[in-house]
């Protein structure tokens, strides 16, 4: 675990006061601090961008807006695609009743389509999203960490 403690005031994070306005006074004092002792990347430079993000300069604002848009697009493409595909099945079955008589390896096709297929499909979409989302986040961190 990389969570160790350090003396208060270590400049690895922005000052607590601004960020935690919603906390009570007592809570702000006692907040747990995350200090990474040996990080290959230069934390000092990252810090500057983080403060930029914090203070919503136009650069920081644009960065985070782009990230949100990227993540949302990935989620919509994968989730929307999978869910629409599944949600089309009842309509297809309704419009083409003959599908109910098709047999595949002794089992009727609709039973295979509904009983087996959706589960690997959902997992596959989830897996793809995890890869995408994590690579977006990785890109974001490296763009911050110039």
């Amino acid at each position: 675990m990389s969570k160790h403690s350090g003396p208060p005031g270590q400049p690895d994070q922005p000052q607590p006061g601004e960020r935690d306005a919603w906390l009570s006074v007592a809570a702000r004092k006692n907040r747990r601090r995350r200090v990474v002792l040996a990080d290959p990347r230069g934390r000092g430079r990252v810090l500057r961008t983080i403060i930029e993000l914090e203070e919503q300069t136009s650069v920081g604002e644009k960065l985070i807006r782009d990230l949100i848009r990227q993540q949302l697009r990935a989620a919509f493409l994968l989730g929307g695609g999978t869910l629409t595909l599944l949600a089309l099945l009842p309509l297809v079955f309704y419009l083409v009743p003959a599908l109910g008589d098709v047999e595949l390896a002794g089992v009727r096709l609709p039973w295979l389509l509904l009983g087996v297929l959706p589960f690997p499909l959902c997992y596959g979409a989830g897996y793809a999203y995890r890869r995408l989302a994590e690579s977006h986040e990785h890109d974001f961190v490296s763009s911050v960490d110039r």
Binding site: Q13, R34, Q56, E61, I64, L67, I68, Q71, E137, V144
Partner: peptide, 14 residues
């Protein structure tokens, strides 16, 4: 904006 930043900023940024 600050709240959405907290929701979406990657975890390593803390």
């Amino acid at each position: 904006s600050r709240i959405l930043l907290r929701f979406h900023a990657p975890d390593p940024l803390g």
